[in-house]
Amino acid sequence: MTVSTQIQLVRRPVGTPTPEDFATVTVDLPALDDGEVRVRNEYVSVDPYMRGRMNDSRSYVAPFGLNETMTGGAVGRVTESASATLPVGTAVLHGYGWRDVAQGPAAQFSPLPETDLPLSVFLGAAGMTGLTAYAGLKRVAGLKEGDVVFISGAAGAVGSIAGQVARKLGASRVIGSAGSAEKVALLKEKYGYDDAFNYKDAPVRRQLRDLTPDGIDVYFDNVGGDHLEAAIDRLNTGGRAALCGAISQYNDTERAPGPDNLGNLVTRSLNLEGFIVGRHQDLQAEFAERMTGWLADGSIVFDETVVDGIGNAVGAFLDMMNGANTGKMLVRA
C-alpha cells in the first residue's frame, strides 16, 4: 500500500492565514481501479488565488472543504498505471496538488511533452502562469504596438512573465513595481523592464507619476488597492486595464474603500476588465507554440523559488503571500 502525505484545511482563516489553519496528514492509497493512475508529484504549485478558496464564499472556483485535502496544480510522473493511455513514466500535469503522491482517473491527468526544460516550467512560464500573462495582455487589455504598459507585482510569478510578454507583443515601454530594491534591479536587469520602483519607498501614485510623464496605455493588475488607484490616474484616454488579482487585499477582514478616481473611467473612456484565465483556454495552443519558442531561444527567461518537502507547503504558501518569492513559488514534493 502506498502512503500519500497531504495538506488539509482544518480552519477557515480570519485575516492572514496561520499554520494552525492547516494539518498534514498521511493517507493510505487503495489499489488502482481500472483506468486509474498513480503519480509521484515532482512539483506542487502554491498560488495567490488559493487564499480565496480558503473562504466559504462565492467565487469563480469552489472553496476548499474543511478537513479535506486541498487541490491545485502539480506535475509529476506516473509510477503505477491501470490505463493504456498513460503508461508508467509519463510526465503529467494535473490538479491533485498539496500532496506528494496523487491517484485518480487517467482522464484527470494531462500528458506533457518531453523537453530540455524542467517539468516545473509547465506550472509557470509554459503553464497557467504564462497563459494568464498572455491572455491578459493580448486579449483582455488588447495590447497594441507602441503601448506603454505598467505591471504591478512585477517580480511575482505572473508579473515576471507579463513584462517580457508585453515586449514581445509590441509594447514600447514597460514599467513594473516590486517590494524590494533587489527585485527592482532584477526587473530591469533580467526581465527587460525599462523602469521599475519599490512600492515601499514612497506612495505608489507619486512614483508612477514620476516615471510616466506621458501616461500609460495598459495596466496589468496583480495587486489592486493603491496600485490600481495610481494606474487609473495615469491611464491615457482609451486606456485598458486587465485586472488579474488583488493580492494586497486578500487577507482583509473589512471591505476596502474603492479607488477615489473612478470618474476617470468616464472622462478618459477607460476600460477596466477583470478576467479568469480558465475562460481563455482557446488561446492555449497559440500560447504554447509561441511560449515554447521564446523559452527555447532564451528570449523569455523565468525564475522559480523552490521549497523542498510537501510538509513545508504551508510555509511556502504563507511566504508567497508575503512576497518572499521571486518568480513562481513551488514546492518540490
Results as ranks from 00 to 15, higher is better:
L208C: 04
L243I: 15
G192W: 01
D217L: 03
A242M: 11
Y250R: 04
G192M: 06
V218D: 00
Q249S: 14
S177P: 09
R167E: 12
A241C: 13
A241R: 02
K168R: 15
Y219P: 01
R205K: 15
D221N: 15
I247M: 12
S180G: 13
Q249M: 14
D201H: 08
G179N: 10
L211E: 05
D201V: 03
D194I: 07
R173Y: 06
V223T: 12
R205N: 12
A231I: 01
Y193E: 02
D226Y: 04
K188N: 14
E189R: 11
A246F: 14
E229R: 13
N198I: 06
S180N: 12
G176N: 10
D194K: 06
G192V: 04
L187P: 09
R167Q: 14
I216L: 13
D217A: 07
G224K: 06
A171K: 05
R234G: 05
L228Q: 13
N222C: 10
R234D: 11
R167G: 12
Y219R: 02
N236H: 08
A178V: 06
T237D: 13
D233V: 09
R205P: 00
I216C: 09
N236G: 00
A166D: 03
A171L: 05
S180Y: 12
A196S: 10
K183A: 10
I175N: 00
G192I: 07
N251D: 14
A241M: 14
A246V: 14
D210N: 14
R234H: 09
T237S: 13
G224V: 05
R173K: 15
D214Q: 14
A256F: 08
G170M: 10
S177G: 13
G239E: 02
D217G: 04
G225V: 02
P213F: 05
I247L: 04
G238N: 08
F197H: 02
I175M: 01
S180H: 11
V218R: 00
G170E: 13
A231M: 05
L169T: 09
L243E: 03
